[in-house]
């Protein structure tokens, strides 16, 4: 166990090293990165000045070390647009994105589990077929298109739910206004449903399919037959014996889920004008605001890597086969 932990931590360090290396070098892919930071009409003198200011005249290895030490302090340079620290812009928008991602994760997991189990228990029936059909469609739709359709039908035609806007919960919570946060919850959920469901659908479809096949696998094991033969009720067998073991591959997916959903927020936040990091990235792409894009990419990547680590640790405590080997 201790050995495993050390190996896993070491691996995380290597991955973080790789992530920073990749993001650093992606800036240099098009040749001189200075040109990304100046306007197209900049004079040679201006370009040279910017190059010196940003340190692009130093040797590459030196630049990388500077990049990593600055990044470790949360310093990714100033936004080219607002002239304020890029990382602060990302952090300001983070609560809205976390709200959206957590909500989507909730939808993708809480609904997937019963759907998958029911489909597995009724294998080959119309119910199972319906679930598989939904899963097939859910995984074949571009999420942003689903968002546009929901806006058109549920938002505009039926007028049931708001199609844009955001009621903050985490922000007041962090600032200590607990009552405000609490009172905001109903409004927040109202605004979260359309973007949240849009973001969650792909994962929901995949998770339902995964739970189903994982359950099918477990249900065919000998110990399930034994449990049934002992005369245990179906739900005891499913709940106590099958589900817990079917959960193991699912936990890995759930851990990866947060990162997966995070990478979807760029598109979904743009569709719903959600004031989070994703929309910030989209706007920064259009304005070629490199420091903001870079700090968001690195921050999300690190979050993803650390969550992976966390998942692996949870995984080891859940599955004794891994814990003991």
């Amino acid at each position: 166990m201790g050995n495993y932990l050390i190996r896993r931590l070491l691996q995380t360090v290597i991955v973080i090293f790789g992530v920073t290396l990749l993001t650093f070098f992606s800036l240099h892919l098009a040749g001189d990165p200075t040109l990304l930071y100046v306007s197209e009409r900049a004079s040679d003198a201006e370009i040279a000045e910017t190059r010196a200011k940003l340190g692009f005249d130093k040797p590459l290895s030196r630049q990388y070390i500077d990049f990593v030490t600055n990044a470790a302090r949360g310093d990714f340079g100033n936004s080219l647009r607002t002239r304020t620290p890029a990382f602060d812009l990302v952090m300001e928008r983070l609560p809205a994105t976390i709200e959206l991602t957590l909500f989507a994760m909730f939808v993708a997991i809480v609904f997937a589990v019963p759907i998958g189990i029911l489909a597995a228990m009724n294998r080959g029936t119309a119910l199972d077929g319906g679930v598989m059909l939904f899963a097939m469609f859910g995984q074949s739709m571009p999420s942003f298109w689903l968002g546009i359709m929901l806006i058109l039908i549920v938002g505009l035609r039926l007028g049931w739910l708001p199609i844009s806007g955001h009621v903050p919960v985490l922000q007041p919570l962090f600032e200590g206004h607990f009552m405000v946060a609490f009172e905001n919850i109903p409004g927040a959920i109202n605004h979260l449903i359309l973007p949240g469901v849009t973001l969650a659908t792909f994962s929901l479809a995949r998770n339902a399919r995964l739970i189903r096949s994982s359950m099918l696998e477990v249900l065919s094991q000998d110990y399930i037959t034994t449990a049934k033969a002992k005369g245990l009720r179906t739900w005891t067998v499913v709940g106590r014996h099958a589900f817990r073991n079917a959960l193991i591959p699912f936990i890995t997916i759930v851990g990866l889920e947060f990162g997966f959903l995070l990478s979807g927020v760029v598109v979904i936040e743009t569709v719903f004008s959600w004031p989070g990091v994703g929309r910030l990235v989209f706007n920064s792409i259009n304005q070629r605001d490199i420091p903001v894009v870079q700090s968001a990419v690195i921050f999300f990547s690190l979050l993803f890597v650390l969550l992976n680590l966390l998942v692996d640790l949870v995984y080891t405590t859940l599955d004794p086969r891994i814990r003991l080997s």
Binding site: V19, S263, V297, F300, S301, N308
Partner: peptide, 9 residues
């Protein structure tokens, strides 16, 4: 170990 679409962006 990290979401590729972000690097693609």
């Amino acid at each position: 170990a990290f979401p590729f679409i972000l690097l693609a962006i």
